[in-house]
């Protein structure tokens, strides 16, 4: 399995999500946590970019971080999977290595 990229910054402020997207190979995964969850939502200026990336990447978002920020699962882009911390742990073990885009 390829790499799991974690992103913890809002895509509207920092380049972490861009960095992860542009360095993720086919079959890699992106997990959005903390302020990174704002990248997983429908109807934003970057939603299209995420929708396109779903053709080659798996994209996950951490549910507890979503809920904490007043967002619900139905606001998440179709095809992006919501996971909890147990799911975060599973992703870390399923993928070969983890790279944090801080």
């Amino acid at each position: 399995m390829a790499m799991l990229h974690t992103v913890n910054k809002s895509p509207f402020e920092k380049r972490s999500l861009d960095g992860a997207l542009s360095h993720a190979v086919n079959g890699a995964a992106i997990l959005m946590i903390e302020d990174g969850i704002y990248g997983a939502l429908k109807g934003t200026a970057i939603s299209g970019k995420i929708e396109k990336s779903l053709a080659t990447l798996k994209v996950y978002v951490l549910g507890p971080d979503l809920k904490a920020r007043g967002m619900t699962e139905d606001q998440v882009i179709d095809g992006v999977t919501v996971v909890d911390y147990a799911g975060f742990v599973d992703l870390v073990t399923e993928y070969d290595k983890v790279q944090a885009w801080l």
Binding site: N8, I33, E34, D35, P64, D84, Y85, A86, F88, V89, D90, V92, T93
Partner: peptide, 19 residues
């Protein structure tokens, strides 16, 4: 910063899964 909280939650979940 949330990093320490995230790490704590991660460790709790990992331990619960037997890692």
């Amino acid at each position: 910063h949330q990093a320490a909280d995230s790490a704590l939650q991660f460790v709790k979940a990992a331990v619960a899964k037997g890692h």
